[in-house]
Design a protein around this nucleic acid. Structure first.
Length: 572
RNA sequence: GGGCAAGUGGCCUAGACUGGAUAUGGCAGCAGCCUCCUAAGCUGCAGGUCCGGGGUUCGAAUCCCCGCUUGCCCGCCA
């Protein structure tokens, strides 16, 4: 339950009644202004035209007509706004009661009864995940967590691209290039780091040796024809690579529910069936044996209107398999969301048009992110120019470890390592997700590994402070007495805690996950101020209510961190 | 050449969907705060042509148009 709901409803119904009284028919558009101004506000500007009066005059007129119950403390007109201040005691009571009742479920939305299939990451298994692509699993996993918190049934899925020239090339390299000719990505004993060197060397040979080109072409044909030997060779290499990638994902707390292999859609005939159906539609045309759809009627213009779905030799293309995959996904869920790099925008537009042509009434919703680049340019696995996610994680943990060691000489080595892991990895995830996905990011170590201010450790630290106070207090009686929680720092903190369910809803419904870290920062900041000025332990008759507030804050911080896939350490 | 995004103090960033009350935070800088619950913290100071130019409006960071800059895409690759 949302503790703000009764207040919001009271404000809305009173405004509605007042509007009817002055004869204005108007869509209710409430705002939540800056805390210093009011709790809720109704702007009267759009009424000005209809009523032919100044907004300020309308606001004054409305104030006189407003009737509210005890949930509202004050109503006043200011600057063309009708402002509302809610009853602070009631807000304190409603908020703390709800947090203490729901605890880790505070903010959780009602079960929506909607199955969402969220595809994310799906990076090509040709090398270790680099930072350029690292936004994908982090955004995807965070969105999945937020949607679940909202009440959606979410399944996450990774499409493994085990079809096509690049995986064939990789597999060929692993079989044919001697180990000593290859430079691994690092000295890590991880399959993705060990194998990527073969891929890079194979790419070089492809350019320098014509006979390699012929071998690859032959293997590719063998794969498409279902030659068991080739298929199993590619499968084996891809599985090893994927194993390494999954280890990396796991280390940033990302676990996907399902891995679907692209080759499945060739082997089970789905891709072929898509081709056959597409060949019968009016948009279908042929050019030298290859078939394509003319998408000029679908808002796609210029040279991009030809959307090929077969080669002239009749074999399928990635996009054809992707269509089969999406049809399959729609059988399994009510709603599809894809988290994709911005290079996929046109492809997805074409895919959506093709799905419509095939008679589908639903298309996937896409969340695009811009790539993280290096100051010297775009990262590339093939060229070996990349910062690997694994290296970034290690560096984050090392730096966090230095910080822990400086501060906590009392802890065991093992404990320090554990805390450094939680902080380093958390800092990484937070820094990716705090920025809107569509903004381009130039990678800088100092920024990626910020432990202060607007960062995961800031939230984690506030959480640890809560835990520390609660641990020192021991058992206590949960007391909610608004008259004993009258300090401005307490009131400010509670007001922010009350907004958590609203934030959860906005994150999920609007798919704006960067609201979550921003909100967490607000909570932690308000708590730190409270911490600095309001003593909790040894505060006499106020100790119990303050401990209740501290515990409530802890639940909210823990919830926020959990939504972000970040561990909430009890000490640091 | 065409298309899709983004441009907010030295740096990073919120707000833009739904125009409205002093543009949100952080980093870096300067000045303070640990006999008291962890200073990964708190307080204060300083720092802004919201890329530029037009337009719509009583009112524009927000909407429209024209530019500029940056990223991405425009393959019978995946």
């Amino acid at each position: 339950m949302d503790p703000l709901a009764p207040f919001r409803e009271e404000v809305e119904s009173s405004v509605k009644a007042a509007l009817e009284e002055i004869g204005a028919r108007q869509e209710l558009q409430m705002e939540v202004p800056d805390a210093a101004i009011a709790d809720f506000a109704f702007p009267c500007f759009s009424l000005a035209k209809v009523l032919r009066k100044a907004p300020a005059a309308i606001a004054e007129e409305l104030v006189a007509k407003i009737k509210t119950n005890s949930l509202i403390e004050r109503v006043w007109a200011d600057n063309g706004y009708l402002n509302f201040k809610v009853n602070q005691s009631e807000l304190v009571r409603a908020t703390l009661q709800e947090v203490m009742r729901a605890r880790s479920d505070y903010g959780k939305g009602e079960d929506k009864g909607t199955k969402v299939l969220l595809e994310h990451t799906s990076v090509n298994p040709t090398g270790p995940i680099h930072v350029g692509r690292a936004r994908n699993p982090i955004i995807g996993d965070t969105l999945a967590r937020c949607l679940r918190k909202c009440g959606y049934q979410v399944a996450t899925e990774y499409l493994v691209n085990d079809v096509g020239r690049q995986v064939v090339l990789l597999s060929w390299g692993v079989r044919n290039i001697p180990q000593e000719d290859v430079v691994p990505a690092s000295d890590r004993q991880k399959d993705d780091h060990l194998l990527v060197g073969f891929y890079q060397r194979a790419n070089e040979q492809l350019e320098s040796k014509p006979e390699v080109e012929a071998q690859i072409a032959s293997l590719t044909r063998g794969f498409e024809a279902g030659d068991p030997e080739v298929v199993s060779m590619v499968r084996e290499t891809t599985e090893r690579m994927l194993h390494g990638i999954r280890e990396s994902l796991s280390s940033i707390n990302v676990e996907l529910d399902q891995y679907t292999w692209e080759s499945q859609f060739i082997l089970n005939g789905d891709a072929k069936r898509v081709v056959e159906r597409l060949k019968t539609v009016p948009e279908c045309h042929e050019e030298e044996g290859a078939f394509y759809l003319d998408l000029s009627a679908f808002g796609i213009h210029g040279r991009d209107t030809k959307f090929f779905f077969t080669r002239s030799d009749g074999t399928t293309l990635y996009t054809t398999r992707d269509m089969a995959y999406h049809q399959d996904k729609f059988k399994r869920a009510d709603q599809l969301i894809n988290v994709l790099g911005e290079d996929q925008k046109l492809e997805q537009q074409q895919l959506a048009a093709a799905l419509r042509i095939l008679g589908g009434d639903k298309v996937p919703e896409c969340l695009f992110y811009a790539f993280v680049s290096l100051p010297e340019g775009r990262m590339s696995t093939r060229k070996g120019r990349a910062v690997h996610l694994d290296d970034l994680i290690d560096e984050a943990e090392d730096r966090a470890y230095e910080e822990v060691r400086k501060r906590r000489v009392d802890l065991s080595e093992e404990k320090m390592r554990q805390i450094a892991r939680d902080i380093g990895r958390g800092a990484l995830r937070f820094n990716i997700v705090r920025v809107q996905a569509e903004k381009q990011i130039v990678f800088k170590w100092e920024e990626a590994l910020n432990f202060e201010g607007n960062s995961a450790p800031f939230l984690q630290y506030a959480h640890a402070r809560c835990c520390s106070i609660l641990a020192k207090a021991g058992e206590f009686e949960r007391v909610i007495d608004p008259s004993l929680l009258d300090d401005p720092y307490e009131r400010k903190l509670i007001r922010i805690l009350a907004q958590y369910p609203t934030v959860v809803r906005d994150c999920g419904v609007k798919r704006r996950i960067h609201l979550m870290p921003a909100y967490g920062q607000e909570v932690a900041s308000a708590f730190n101020q409270f911490y600095a000025y309001v003593p909790v332990l040894r505060s006499g008759e106020r100790q119990a209510v303050r401990l209740t507030l501290v515990e409530s804050t802890m639940w909210v911080l823990r919830g926020v961190l959990d939504n972000l896939g970040i561990v909430a350490p009890e000490e640091m």
